[in-house]
Amino acid sequence: MLTNLFDGVAYGMLLFVIACGLSVTLGLMNLINLAHGAFAMAGGYITVLLVNGWGVPFFAALPIAFVASALIGLLLERTLYIHVYRKSPLDQVLFSIGLVFMAMSGVAYMIGSQQQFIKLPEFLGARFEVLGASIGAYRLLIVVVCGLLAAALQFIIARTRFGSQLRAAVDDPVVARGLGINVDLVFAATFAVGSGLAGLGGALGAEILGLDPTFPLKYMVYFLIVVAVGGSAGMMGPLVAALLLGIADVSGKYYLPQFGSFIIYVLMIVVLLWRPQGLFSRAGGR
């Protein structure tokens, strides 16, 4: 019971770290980006190459995965995404699905379509008992790292100058521009950091989530649920949504294996019926 809860929390934390960037880009630019999972996949594969191929220590590979994914995100934002902000939702969907397809086949072509496993440091395989629950060191690491990241993000958004600019830009881009905030710059930075976090999450979670070229498609709905249920106003909404999703999915698959992933879809549909406006804090904004 507690073990499942803990695994669910770890899973939810991962989803949060991967999806939080998505919630900000959606809130900031009304951008429907279905390709967000591709950045997580990029982080995962970079780590695989570094750790398995070149023998880079796992903990050294994580920050590299973050930086590399962020750079990829920044590059794509400046060259491609910047042109689709003002396009219709349909265009954004077409564009980002196109990116997903390209990323999937690109990875399959270069690396192969088999599932990848990262060689984790041995001590992460340890398990210990806490209050009757069996806690894996690897999942504990995920909870700690993601928890720290969530706290850091909350701090940045609530307390720093960049955070207040970001909040202003999310609330009303036009007014924010009028106040002299460089919304484009804020967005590029946010997009890059969001992509980096997704990459870090993909690297950390490769073991739990499974890493193969279908990754961006497989988890697309999960990331979208986190964003839709959590709203785009702050970090707390997506965090709570991600934890709920993680716990529901893990315990659903454990207790009702025959229904497995149905649970989350049914939950989402119920939530949407309950909050017709799709649970967006700024529903109908466009």
Binding site: I32, L224, A228, L272, P276, Q277, F280, G285
Partner: peptide
Amino acid sequence: RGSDLTRIMVTLS
């Protein structure tokens, strides 16, 4: 119900 994104999500789901 909801915005374009909600519709996309629901149809996808």
